[in-house]
Write a protein that binds this DNA or RNA. Structure first.
Lengths: 349, 349
DNA sequence: TGACAGAATTGGAACGTTCCAAATAAATAG
DNA sequence: CTATTTATTTGGAACGTTCCAATTCTGTCA
């Protein structure tokens, strides 16, 4: 049952050299003679040697473990799955390997997962923090010299690098577009006000409104859960307003879908009777009916970018916290009313 | 810059005991006195000790590394993301940690990834193999006593456990349902014939057709890429047939969506003019218009199940290959024409 | 009091690698 | 032919843990 592991010493014996030489070969050192190198390699193949990284890591610094920890708050959400794929791409081609875990927005789980990763000696961590994560949670990591990159949600106060999408600019573009279509009363729907992302998006909304010379009206800002159900709720309140809005920018696509549902329930057709713009550009956005006009953020790109940043820090051996915001772009489809041949099929229910 | 790592010896010194005792505490041994245990724990907390699993793994068998490797062929596909989440759930609550990698259907990448995982000493592997994976690829793993569980796609010939959904029964149920709606000419569209999954689904289709007393007609089986584009192509051929079918079961949901596209392009309304049934029940299926009737396979359940199976084998220390097929169920929505507002009962075209 | 059992603790040795200083071999210079 | 490089190779000594056998400490019992 128990196979005796083939070690570097077995190889050495079989190849008639010392274990040190084998080690050098393993590391691709230029010190070793071409002849011996190939002989050693041949023997390795023959005996079916597998490198024991654990043992190696014992000697070397943890920076050399070549394991990158990736923690996301909701892998079910295709946004984060895409992000993970982006990370994996660059991490893998750099010869690292990815340790992916999902926290499902649970802070406790997040703590466990990060602790476990630390025990395994990760050389860096990319994390999209669970809601209400304490900025101090990653303190011990960076104190231990392990670079951390926070993505998507930023962690004000934590001295770590972060990379978030340009929420302000995105929201501004969305508002601008709606203004261009002639809307004067534009609502901001959904999202929890206690998050940094919410603040950014709201700020973008406000800037857009003011830049257009429309007055910023607090009444038009209606927060709710950042979900489909939250969207239904928010649009309900918006419709009930005295001076009813004719368009809305939503905290994210889920909210936007909910808003569409809510509109239909009131016999209003999204796109035709009321303009809706989302944020994120999840895959469902383009297949939906009507196709959702939304701000595209390219999660895979963020993943790639974050991974590159992390690798840079790992190689530098020094973690200077830098913050990057990635560009976003407005994707105009049908739900804002500017679509091609107006509501195609979507005849009213 | 370089923090001196806190080791078990530092703890021992500070707590006034030997390193062996500290080790026993770490392992929760009942041999150690309650008083010393709590003192040691206190010191650990105080000094910010972090366990070094790598060092531990060096002494213990690799079965104790508590790392589970998970390899999927396409993480972008929400089906597999869900699967990974399912695995993560049970793996995590068992105190293991997940090493997730994505192969993007590349066999080379798969080989690399698996090799890397092996170097890191995984105690087990769950894999949804890339297309055309050689059954022998996992031979060395099982030879080394590392349990492997193959999910979703099976690997005929490999002596490893596998867990696949009941493709036959699912397809049979789909056909039965269409027969019940009065269809006599039912096509099987999409998929590559060189895969085991295809064979199973086709067999289910055939059984269903024959059980209904309809003759199996090879002409009605039209293979294509298992993608949206493939679906468009397949329905094109189907429509061109002399004795045109009035309904189709599709290899998977992507194909089904493509079929709907193709129908619309020919001014036929899916559900009303032609019945379409998919397979997988991806999340988009219920939001689509018309909502897709499809066979639901619960990827998260497969993930959980697979993880349980793997853990069992790891704990048993013995890997007996067992094969499990999980139940599926037909979810009737609108695209088959049996939806709520029961549109035209698929009158012949 | 001595012997003995049980409970608690403890010093190495071992795991498979890397690193360092030092040894050897080969080549070149004086 | 010795001294000096230069190119290879090589034995330990780590790294941080676990395991084993052995030890010390407390009682208990005859």
């Amino acid at each position: 049952m128990t196979k005796p592991r083939v070690t570097v010493i077995d190889i050495a014996k079989a190849a008639g050299v010392s274990k040190s030489t084998v080690s050098l070969v393993l590391q691709g050192s230029s010190l070793v003679n071409e002849g011996t190198r190939s002989k050693v390699n041949a023997v390795m193949r023959e005996l079916g040697y597998v490198y024991n990284r654990g043992a190696a890591n014992l000697r070397q610094a943890s920076a050399k473990s070549r394991i990158i920890g990736v923690v996301v708050n909701d892998l079910t959400n295709s946004f984060f799955a895409e992000l993970a794929v982006g990370v994996d791409m660059v991490v893998q081609s750099a010869g690292f390997v990815q340790f992916l875990s999902n926290t499902s927005e649970s802070i406790d789980r997040q703590r466990e997962v990060v602790a476990s990763m630390r025990e395994h000696g990760i050389s860096g961590l990319i994390v999209s923090p669970a809601r209400a994560t304490d900025a101090a949670d990653f303190k011990p990591l960076v104190a231990a010299g392990i670079p951390v990159v926070v993505v998507v949600r930023n962690l004000p106060g934590a001295k770590v690098s972060s990379i978030v999408s340009d929420n302000r600019a995105g929201m501004m573009a969305a508002v601008e577009h709606l203004v261009g279509l002639g809307h004067k009363r534009i609502a901001f729907l959904g999202g929890f006000p206690d998050t940094a992302v919410f603040d950014d998006r709201l700020a973008g909304y406000r800037s857009g409104i003011e830049a257009a010379g429309l007055g910023y009206d607090e009444e038009l800002v209606i927060s709710s859960a950042p979900s489909r159900a939250g969207g239904v709720e928010a649009i309900g309140k918006a419709i009930g307003l005295g001076d009813r809005p004719t368009a809305a920018v939503c905290f994210n696509d889920a909210v936007a879908f909910g808003v569409c549902d809510g509109l239909r329930a009131r016999r209003l057709e999204p796109g035709a009777d009321f303009a809706v713009v989302g944020f994120d550009d999840v895959i469902e956005a383009q297949a939906a009916v009507p196709a959702l006009t939304t701000v595209s953020v390219d999660p895979q790109g963020i993943g790639r970018r974050g991974a590159q940043m992390l690798l840079k820090q790992i190689n530098a051996g020094k973690a200077e916290a830098e913050t990057v915001t990635t560009a976003v772009r407005l994707v105009v489809r049908e739900s804002c009313g500017a679509g091609k041949a107006a509501p195609a099929r979507a005849g009213r229910a």
